[in-house]
Design a protein around this nucleic acid. Sequence first.
DNA 1: ACCCTATCTTGACATTGACAAAATCGCGAG
DNA 2: CTCGCGATTTTGTCAATGTCAAGATAGGGT
Lengths: 191, 191
Amino acid sequence: MRPIKQNGYHHGNLRRAVLDAALEAIAESGPAGWSLRELARRAGVSHAAPAHHFGDKTGLLTAVAAEGFGMFADALERAGDDALEVGVAYVRFAVGHRPYFEVMFRPELYRMDDPGLTTARERAARVLLTSSGRLSPAPAQERLTTIAAWSLVHGFACLWLSGSLPEAAREDPEALARSVIRLFPGTSSPS
Amino acid sequence: MRPIKQNGYHHGNLRRAVLDAALEAIAESGPAGWSLRELARRAGVSHAAPAHHFGDKTGLLTAVAAEGFGMFADALERAGDDALEVGVAYVRFAVGHRPYFEVMFRPELYRMDDPGLTTARERAARVLLTSSGRLSPAPAQERLTTIAAWSLVHGFACLWLSGSLPEAAREDPEALARSVIRLFPGTSSPS
DNA sequence: ACCCTATCTTGACATTGACAAAATCGCGAG
DNA sequence: CTCGCGATTTTGTCAATGTCAAGATAGGGT
């Protein structure tokens, strides 16, 4: 946002500033419509400053994805054990943190071997697994039920973000998501 | 693939050649991991030849999306009126024509005001609407049911394409999709 | 034989990602 | 205090890319 440097050189936390600038740029132009040099310009530093903290563009996107998966896992854990609430939290995160979400589920943009990223990813997957497991009518279908519930909320989030749903513009996505998820068997009566 | 030109200049259908080269490049490196000049190199023409047919990079991606929506609508119409089969066709198209699918649902990459694109898009939407409509238990929930069914198949396709599903590597996506869709209320007994 | 239009080439320019080397800052050792 | 050292930032540079403008070529219609 605002330039960090006052006069001469500085040693501020440029890492955070560049990350925020990247998130803002992704929000404006998508995960590929920006440039490292533009971020540096926004942060008020020279064109090669971000390279020291992130290596290259892929490294910056890896940092975005890792942070995103961490926040995502937190949000899902906060939703508790009820599958409906976890699903709503899934959509709420996608809509409320669109830049993170758009990078997270595009693995060709970042490095999947990042350690912090994979742990956060597994943490989020565990919440999805446990919450959707109790939707299954029989233990044999537990795996399919998890995939189906995950697909439902993920698909809704993607369609809403891409503007494919005609009602996307004039309706609250969270309320709409709640109504849609309720159609899935087992989510109507939580307790 | 193969260079078109034999000797000197040529007037072949470069448009098709560039489109095919673009699809191949997208299949390899995603919708953003290629360059116009690389396509021209692959097709054996000069670096600015594609510009005459597509204007710019966005124009080329618009052509890809338009052609993709046309093939998509054809595939869905071929599946008939049964919601389960339409859903399976949805996933089959996403997996079998991955480059098209990845561009189609990323509107920031192309121009949505393209006339041929919007007509094909509406044609596909109509199939989804009519086939999912008969899944609804009550007419009042028809809109929600359509959104839910669409979200389910779209989410499954996206998760499978992004490699997020752990079983993605060792199972047939079409069969898995069929099992998953069957969990949705109303799809078990088609007739 | 000639021209005309679509098609393709060539040349150029600004922007970008990446790398190397120099410059600067901040902090601890003496 | 000051000196040096590592972390950080700058500057300079290069190849690659997208886009535009101008020239060259082919093939058909007159």
